[in-house]
């Protein structure tokens, strides 16, 4: 298939995955807002979406200060924000339109309908209809995208490049969230207050944003604890958003696509590290360090996939 088409499919799925991640974060923030001070994860929960997508400075320049409403408006419907749901979806749709002859008509229809539903929606419109309903609807649309993608596309290169984009974005998001969370936990250690309860709710934010609360309970049968969360999100391949699960899937697809040896060895190297590392070891090198390293390596792999297959120079 055409390298440029592969590139479009890759970004289409990558951006769709990013939309889901943004929406989950906003949902988590909304839930946390409803809890009392002790239960809330602190004010900086609304900084997380900005931190995750690297838009904090741009946001502060346009909106002044961080508040739930402003962040929701910025992340949902602001076309000046390249990471807003509306901007991302517009890109998804453009990518799909450029490659629509590779998509099943069901998949095109799913993307196009989602776009048509929100393209003219201002934040005021969303507020009028209920923000929570809108977020839930967006998650539904993301699930529908994934369902139609894997349920209707031929098992060929088009699907494989789309799933590569999805997995890379997912791994990156999990790593960033976990890194941010552990950094915040460090910062808050010295502060006064009922730490245990607060830590619990902060951790809940993380687990919910990664859709991994149920997996945590089923895996550990014990109380919520940052080390265990890290273990779950980094090492447990049964959890769809874990780094391990994502890297495994990337490796499986790449084996079929047969890239240059250097990409393959990078992926195998990453797999090997995740295979052999112990959580106690992670604590020694520092979770933050490890995750930063991981993100860098993912970036590298992503870049190399693009130069190998998509003629991106």
């Amino acid at each position: 298939m055409l390298g440029r088409a592969a590139d479009n499919l890759f970004w289409m799925a990558k951006n769709m995955e990013r939309i889901e991640n943004v929406v989950r974060l906003l949902q988590t923030g909304r839930t946390s807002n409803m809890l009392s001070d002790n239960g809330s994860a602190g004010d900086n929960i609304w900084e997380m979406p900005l931190d995750i997508c690297g838009q904090k400075d741009a946001f502060l320049a346009d909106y002044g200060e961080v508040s739930d409403g402003r962040v929701c408006a910025y992340m949902l419907s602001d076309m000046n924000n390249p990471s807003s749901v509306r901007s991302l979806l517009s890109n998804v749709r453009e990518n799909a339109r450029a490659t629509r002859h590779f998509l099943t008509s069901d998949l095109w229809d799913c993307i196009n309908r989602t776009w048509l539903s929100i393209k003219d929606l201002s934040y005021k419109d969303i507020q009028r209809r209920s923000i929570d309903d809108h977020l839930e609807w967006m998650i539904d649309r993301c699930y529908m995208f994934k369902g139609v993608l894997s349920g209707s596309m031929r098992r060929g290169e088009s699907l494989q490049f789309a799933i590569l984009g999805q997995c890379i974005e997912r791994a990156d998001n999990s790593a960033r969230l976990l890194r941010l969370h552990s950094a915040n936990a460090e910062k808050n250690k010295t502060k006064q207050g009922n730490l245990q309860v607060r830590d619990y709710y902060r951790s809940m934010v993380l687990l919910n944003a990664l859709n991994a609360y149920k997996a945590y309970r089923e895996t550990f049968h014990s109380s919520i604890d940052l080390d265990k969360i890290a273990e779950l999100i980094i090492l447990h391949k049964e959890v769809p958003r874990s780094l391990r699960a994502c890297v495994d899937e990337i490796a499986d697809i790449l084996r079929v696509l047969n890239p240059t040896a250097s990409v393959m060895s990078e992926v195998y190297d990453l797999q090997y590290r995740l295979d052999t590392i112990q959580i106690a070891q992670l604590r020694r090198v520092g979770l933050g360090h490890f995750l930063l390293d991981f993100s860098k390596q993912m970036d590298e792999i992503s870049m190399n996939i693009q130069t190998d297959f998509m003629m991106v120079q």
């Binding site: 298939m1 055409l2 390298g3 440029r4 088409a5 592969a6 290169e157 490049f161 998509m310």
Partner: peptide
Amino acid sequence: ELVEGQDLFVDEGYVYMRTT
């Protein structure tokens, strides 16, 4: 395939497209 100019190149008098 639906190609754009950038997807094609000419080498030794033959036309090729850049595929995966």
